[in-house]
């Protein structure tokens, strides 16, 4: 059994009185690239919000390094756990390097505004995400793909061993989606960071994840290595989609191929 710095037990996640998930227990294996998948409104983004301290569980607790994440100071958590939210906003007229530098906030103070270490880490983060050439450009001028890389660079500059990504490929075209996921996989392998991402595309998840958490209706239906858990039965159970699962000819990981429409002519039962 692998160790886990981040996880939750007996979680009840709710917005006001609307309960999204109850009795939820999850663990993020250390040094994994964990991907959470599931149909719309299954509670996957809500789970990520709870894991990142944005949402306080109505019952149960999210544990970070063995202690309740809501009992730890926000700044201390921010030095261990980073998050790239779904739609962050860049202030008007901000430059790329300046935005990436904001990732250093949890490490800074009134008298420690910009150390040599800050400078080095920001440069490294921009190099790792391939945006070093854009350092002096304005964020407003960038394309969607470039902008997402800049945000990722900001999250990297936070230098947290754990990094959470909420649907990082949304609004990107297929080439930029693969580009970003390749980048995430490389960061995971080379820097040894634990990544947790919510993804929409099951095939992306199966290809890139080392650990998959499949959710439906606020429950974890299956969790484990994609090769072991992604089966036609699981996809049918989680998404209600008839399909075949074959080996991805490129990577050997499971590839979900939706079944051709039934000839009887019913649209969807």
């Amino acid at each position: 059994m692998s160790t886990s710095r981040l996880g939750g037990t007996g979680l009840r996640l709710a917005y006001d009185r609307r309960v999204v998930a109850d009795e939820l227990t999850v663990a993020v294996p250390d040094a994994s690239f964990t991907v959470i998948i599931g149909p719309n409104a299954c509670g996957k983004s809500t789970l990520l919000r709870a894991l990142s301290r944005l949402l306080k569980p109505a019952a149960g607790a999210v544990l970070l390094d063995g202690a309740d994440i809501h009992r730890q100071p926000a700044r201390a958590v921010a030095r261990t756990l980073g998050l790239l939210p779904q739609s962050p906003t860049a202030p008007d007229g901000i430059g790329v390097a300046e935005l990436v530098a904001r990732g250093r906030y949890p490490h800074q103070g009134l008298l420690r505004q910009w150390s040599r270490e800050d400078e080095r880490i920001v440069a490294e983060s921009m190099a790792a995400t391939g945006v070093a050439d854009l350092a002096d450009r304005l964020v407003d001028e960038l394309s969607g793909g470039q902008r997402q890389r800049v945000w990722l660079a900001m999250a990297l500059a936070q230098q947290t061993p754990l990094l959470l990504l909420d649907e990082p490929t949304t609004y990107l075209d297929i080439a930029h989606q693969i580009d970003l996921l390749d980048l995430c996989a490389r960061l995971h392998e080379e820097q040894g960071r634990t990544l947790v991402a919510v993804l929409h595309d099951l095939n992306h998840a199966a290809r890139y994840a080392t650990h998959l958490i499949a959710m439906r209706g606020g429950r974890v239906v299956a969790a484990g290595e994609p090769r072991e858990i992604v089966t036609a039965e699981l996809v049918r159970e989680v998404f209600g989609l008839p399909c075949r699962v074959i080996d991805d000819p490129e990577t050997g990981t499971p590839l979900v191929v939706p079944a051709a429409r039934a000839r009887t002519g019913t649209v969807l039962s």
Binding site: S52, R53, L54, P73, A74, R75, A76, V77, A78, R79, L81, G82, L83, L84, P85, Q86, S87, P88, T89, A90, P91, R102, G103, Y105, P106, Q108, L110, Q113, A155, Q158
Partner: peptide, 23 residues
Amino acid sequence: LAAGPALRMTELGDDAASALGVS
């Protein structure tokens, strides 16, 4: 003035600011 840096972080959105350690 002491709250200034935290205030700048909230320009990124509440979620991003919280993730950076701002209450």
